[in-house]
Deep mutational scan, measured.
Amino acid sequence: SEIVVAMYDFQATEAHDLRLERGQEYIILEKNDLHWWRARDKYGSEGYIPSNYVTGKK
């Protein structure tokens, strides 16, 4: 599975969105859409994140 790191904070506005915290790692579950990826955080929460807010883990 692909691990990404959040470059920016993202506040979830929709129920299906996942909040991003800058510097935290997330697991990508689905990339069915170019701009919104389904991800899981370290607490096990899942939701959609803006793909341009994250970068591949170095």
Results as ranks from 00 to 15, higher is better:
47 G>K: 00
14 E>F: 11
5 V>S: 04
58 K>C: 14
2 E>A: 09
45 S>V: 13
1 S>H: 15
42 K>D: 03
37 W>T: 01
46 E>I: 09
36 W>P: 00
38 R>I: 12
24 Q>H: 11
7 M>T: 07
7 M>I: 14
31 K>M: 08
41 D>E: 01
8 Y>F: 13
27 I>M: 11
27 I>Y: 09
37 W>D: 02
9 D>H: 05
43 Y>P: 00
30 E>R: 04
19 R>N: 15
35 H>Q: 10
10 F>H: 07
50 P>T: 02
56 G>R: 12
30 E>T: 06
7 M>F: 05
57 K>C: 13
22 R>Q: 10
55 T>S: 11
48 Y>C: 14
16 H>C: 15
32 N>V: 13
53 Y>I: 06
2 E>M: 13
5 V>M: 08
19 R>K: 12
53 Y>A: 11
3 I>W: 11
16 H>T: 14
11 Q>R: 09
25 E>N: 07
58 K>R: 12
31 K>Y: 06
48 Y>I: 08
46 E>S: 05
34 L>H: 11
39 A>F: 04
49 I>H: 01
24 Q>A: 10
12 A>P: 15
54 V>P: 03
18 L>M: 06
8 Y>K: 11
41 D>S: 04
42 K>I: 10
4 V>L: 06
9 D>W: 04
56 G>K: 13
19 R>F: 08
2 E>I: 13
23 G>D: 07
29 L>K: 02
10 F>D: 00
50 P>H: 05
34 L>A: 14
19 R>V: 10
16 H>I: 08
8 Y>I: 09
16 H>D: 12
22 R>K: 15
14 E>P: 04
49 I>C: 04
41 D>R: 00
18 L>T: 00
55 T>P: 03
16 H>P: 06
20 L>Q: 01
15 A>W: 11
10 F>V: 06
1 S>I: 15
34 L>I: 12
54 V>N: 01
17 D>H: 15
18 L>A: 00
20 L>P: 03
26 Y>M: 01
36 W>G: 05
17 D>Y: 15
17 D>G: 14
49 I>K: 02
10 F>P: 00
56 G>Y: 13
51 S>N: 06
47 G>P: 00
26 Y>H: 01
4 V>R: 04
26 Y>V: 04
33 D>S: 11
4 V>C: 10
23 G>E: 05
50 P>I: 03
6 A>W: 02
42 K>L: 07
10 F>E: 01
9 D>Q: 04
9 D>A: 05
33 D>W: 07
57 K>H: 11
42 K>F: 07
3 I>M: 08
41 D>W: 03
52 N>S: 15
57 K>F: 11
41 D>G: 01
28 I>Q: 00
3 I>V: 12
34 L>T: 13
40 R>I: 08
7 M>C: 15
52 N>V: 09
8 Y>G: 05
17 D>S: 13
27 I>W: 11
58 K>V: 13
6 A>D: 02
28 I>C: 03
24 Q>N: 09
25 E>M: 10
34 L>P: 15
26 Y>F: 03
58 K>N: 14
40 R>L: 08
47 G>S: 01
58 K>F: 14
35 H>V: 11
22 R>A: 14
12 A>C: 10
8 Y>V: 09
44 G>V: 02
28 I>H: 00
45 S>D: 13
11 Q>N: 13
22 R>W: 07
43 Y>D: 11
53 Y>C: 13
24 Q>T: 04
27 I>S: 06
34 L>Y: 10
53 Y>W: 07
10 F>A: 03
51 S>Y: 06
46 E>D: 05
